[in-house]
Amino acid sequence: MPYSQGITHMAKSWFLKGAPVDGNTVLIPMHSFPATVGRSTQCAVTIDSNGVSRFHAQFDMSAQGELLLTDLGSTNGTYRNRERITAPTSIIEGDILHFGSAEFRVNQTEIGNSQFQSKACSEQTCFFDIAQHSLPENFLLQESDFIEMLSSGLLKVAWQPIVDFHTLDVLAYEVLGRGAHLALPQSPMQLFQLAEKINKEVALSQAFRVCGAKAAARRGEPVRLFMNSHPQEMFLESFFTSVEQICLLAPQMELVMEIHETAVVEGNRLKIVVDRLRSNGVLMAYDDFGAGQARLQEIAEIPADIVKFDMALIRDIHRAPPKKQQMIEQLVKIVTDLGSQTLAEGVETEEEAVVCRQMGFQLCQGYLTGKPELV
């Protein structure tokens, strides 16, 4: 990757700051304005990501020296400090910007000749010439922000109701984690993407469960909660320790641990996990059933208490071809015959609900019966 050359004086300059997976902090200088950002190689800042539009956004400098950012009608939006911008927006040092999912922090600092020579990489900081290459999508803010979020418990949870498909009584809630650190995304998907780059997926998964259990303790009433697990923690001793911890935090809680369907390929090991969970009074649910290959033989050997059918199967099910509807109905019957309750995820319309009831689904989760609410 080439380094910038030819800066001959000390000056205040604007930078986009990020940290790719190799651990270096990268400062990308913007030498002149307007400076466009996008996937096209014609942009001043080229970001190699399908989530970034060809011409995504543009930086400008006002006559008063104010840095302005404008979205150029991008598909996935431009965000300043987690808020989507719809007009030219003033940018100051320290702001966090998202172009689609690509994330940067804005810096303004003094630079000079020595920082841009061919070996100018000191203290894990490299200055790159953005005009000669594309930046990867996987930029990450400083690890310290993420660690602070975990250590300080800067998280929150929303509960989404799970209802009886026929009576519409609320039987349980799924715990859905959110971030609450001002320098990091709120979205759990984005947080797990960041966690993967610093090997903190398991810690984040466990932290969300602790947050959910504390919310249950505050409620002070018996409640059944569905909580998610991360594939990487499934066979670790720390997984069982974390489950025991949250059960102690909220003794009035009936816990259902969600396990991704793909875990059934580890049949012998999974059976040990399920037996240990059930010995502690914890129920088990297979999550996202049917998202990939429906492993019926393995599921028959280790039946779950609940099987959650992936929302991709449920979406527009009333418009699905008859053969697809027949296939899903047969899967519902097979799972029910194994002694598991069947849950339809992502039900958003009454038309979808009618078909799901006819197919024999017992439980429902989706916007039709209740959106996630912070607790």
Rank of each mutant, 00 (worst) to 15 (best):
K271H: 14
H260W: 05
F104C: 01
K197R: 15
K323G: 01
L343N: 04
K17G: 01
G290H: 05
F361H: 07
S229R: 00
R219T: 05
V37A: 05
K308M: 06
L67D: 02
S53M: 05
P136T: 08
I96P: 05
Q193C: 11
E254Y: 11
N24E: 11
I147R: 14
A291N: 08
W14E: 02
E350A: 14
M327T: 13
G6H: 12
S49I: 00
R178Y: 04
R319Q: 15
A207C: 09
E266F: 12
W159Y: 15
G153C: 12
G38Y: 03
G153A: 12
Q5L: 14
A195N: 03
L69G: 01
T342M: 03
T262L: 10
N24P: 03
F116A: 03
E261I: 08
T46W: 06
N268R: 12
T167W: 08
R209L: 10
N76A: 08
P251V: 02
A102N: 00
K308G: 07
Q193S: 13
G292M: 02
L343F: 05
G360H: 01
I92A: 11
D145I: 02
A250E: 01
S53T: 10
F239G: 02
M257Y: 07
E103W: 08
D60W: 06
E201K: 15
F240K: 06
S242R: 04
M284R: 00
Y367H: 15
L135S: 08
S118T: 11
C121F: 10
I306R: 01
G94H: 09
H230A: 14
V175T: 12
G94T: 09
F289L: 06
A19F: 07
Q330T: 15
E123T: 10
G177K: 01
A216M: 12
C121E: 13
A57I: 02
D164T: 04
A87V: 06
Q5V: 13
T349N: 09
L283G: 12
I334C: 03
E348H: 12
M30K: 09
I328M: 10
E373W: 04
V355K: 02
F15K: 06
Q58S: 15
G179A: 05
V375Q: 10
Q160R: 14
N199D: 15
G366N: 05
E350D: 13
V202F: 00
I111A: 07
M61I: 13
I130H: 07
L150G: 09
R105F: 03
